[in-house]
Simulated assay, not measured.
Amino acid sequence: MSKVKYYYDPDTLSYRKIEPKKSRKYRNIFLFVLGAAIFGTMMHIFLLNTNILNTPRELSLQREVKNFELQYDLLNRKLEQMENVLANIEDRDNNIYRLYFEANPIPDEQRRAGFGGVNRYKSLEGFNNSEMIIATTKRLDVIQKQMVIQSKSLDEIAKMAEEKEKLLQAIPAIQPVNNEELTRMASGYGWRSDPFTKARKMHWGMDFTAPRGTPIYAAGDGVVKRADNRASGFGKHIRIDHGYGYLTLYAHLSKYNVKKGQKVKRGDLIGFVGSTGRSEAPHLHYEVWKEGQKINPINFYYGSLTAEEFANMLKFANQENQSLD
């Protein structure tokens, strides 16, 4: 209840009650309503911009945002793990696999190059979190490109490994006559005395003395290019093309066990020791050619001799004696 106000009337020497005017009453009501409206609007704006009071919809959206933030954090951790694993594979690729197969490493600039030209991320612009979305998408694109490059690199390495295996099988790496059946290593590669003219001349292979009919084995995988007696001085002989520039020659055979065009594997029986052609006694004359040049066969016996056997062979091969052909 509003307070009653009075005023002093000098004419009557008494206090009179103040009767409020209706206009003022209406004005007070208007000011009260206006003040209440302003206060209510201010409170509404305040509540909308604070977390003091949230609607169920807002609370649900907040939970979704927090879940998205958690998922984004997990995604970035997974991306980091992928990058670490990929970096480890790339390091082994460049410094182990490619080094072993004598291939050039893939530069980091090529592995981690971005995408130039057209803006690939224009559709992701204009959102509240566009920068975050674009950065993550770019990161995924770079990882995807790295994986494609690495996949192609591993395919290339697998192919090189296959070729390397073929090369290792093709190189003439074993002695063509077994030690158990070998009488002696008669003459090595180098200057030797000719058994017929006694003149000193270059001996381009190694002579293995063995009984007639002793088995002769292919020194490496290849294809028989010749198996005939049409080469001067060699008598019955075999030539095997091993590929990669390697060729081996087996001369003075008594008979063949292969024919021209036949594919052979290292260790296959190809013929037998004899003394055909320009030969002083039963033996195998063995030569190794590389890119058309005759080279010392003693450098290729790592596949069949022990260290002691190789040392003994090296000792006899270096003696400048008389050859058998």
Score class of each variant (00 low, 15 high):
Ala199Ser: 11
Arg200Thr: 15
Arg200Pro: 04
Arg200Met: 12
Lys201His: 12
Lys201Glu: 15
Met202Asn: 13
His203Glu: 13
Gly205Lys: 06
Met206His: 10
Met206Lys: 02
Phe208Met: 02
Thr209Ala: 14
Thr209Gln: 14
Ala210Leu: 04
Ala210Met: 00
Pro211Asn: 13
Pro211Tyr: 11
Pro211Lys: 09
Pro211Met: 01
Arg212Thr: 14
Gly213Ile: 06
Thr214Ala: 05
Thr214Gly: 05
Thr214Phe: 01
Thr214Cys: 07
Pro215Val: 10
Ile216Glu: 03
Tyr217Ala: 02
Tyr217Cys: 08
Ala218Pro: 11
Ala218Leu: 05
Ala218Arg: 00
Ala218Tyr: 02
Ala219Lys: 02
Ala219Val: 08
Gly220Gln: 07
Gly220Ala: 12
Asp221Cys: 10
Val223Asp: 03
Val223His: 11
Val223Leu: 00
Val224Ala: 04
Val224Glu: 01
Lys225Ala: 10
Arg226Asp: 07
Arg226Ala: 14
Arg226Met: 12
Ala227Gly: 03
Asp228Cys: 08
Asp228Lys: 09
Asn229Gly: 02
Arg230Phe: 06
Arg230Ser: 11
Arg230Tyr: 10
Ala231Trp: 07
Ala231Lys: 13
Ser232Pro: 03
Ser232Trp: 12
Gly233Pro: 02
Gly233Phe: 08
Gly233Glu: 07
Phe234Ile: 01
Phe234Leu: 13
Phe234Gln: 05
Gly235Ile: 09
Gly235Arg: 02
Lys236Val: 06
Lys236His: 13
Lys236Glu: 14
Ile238Val: 14
Arg239Phe: 14
Arg239Ile: 15
Asp241Leu: 05
His242Gln: 00
Gly243Ala: 07
Gly243Val: 04
Tyr244Lys: 10
Gly245Leu: 05
Gly245Phe: 10
Gly245Thr: 01
Leu247Trp: 08
Leu247Asn: 08
Leu247Cys: 08
Leu249Trp: 06
Leu249Met: 13
Leu249Ile: 07
Tyr250Val: 01
Tyr250Asp: 02
Ala251Leu: 09
Ala251Met: 09
His252Phe: 08
His252Trp: 02
Leu253Asp: 12
Leu253Pro: 01
Ser254Gly: 09
Ser254Leu: 11
Ser254Lys: 11
Ser254Ile: 10
Ser254Asp: 15
Ser254Cys: 06
Lys255Arg: 15
Lys255Cys: 07
Lys255Ser: 14
Lys255His: 13
Tyr256Met: 04
Asn257Arg: 07
Asn257Met: 06
Asn257Ile: 04
Val258Asp: 00
Lys259Ala: 06
Lys259Met: 10
Lys260Gln: 09
Gly261Ser: 02
Gln262Lys: 14
Gln262Tyr: 06
Gln262Arg: 08
Gln262Ala: 14
Gln262Val: 10
Val264Asp: 03
Val264Cys: 01
Lys265Ser: 15
Lys265His: 05
Lys265Ile: 04
Arg266Asn: 09
Arg266Asp: 08
Arg266Thr: 09
Arg266Lys: 15
Arg266Pro: 06
Gly267Asn: 07
Gly267Thr: 10
Asp268Trp: 14
Leu269His: 03
Ile270Ser: 02
Gly271Leu: 06
Gly271Ala: 10
Phe272Met: 09
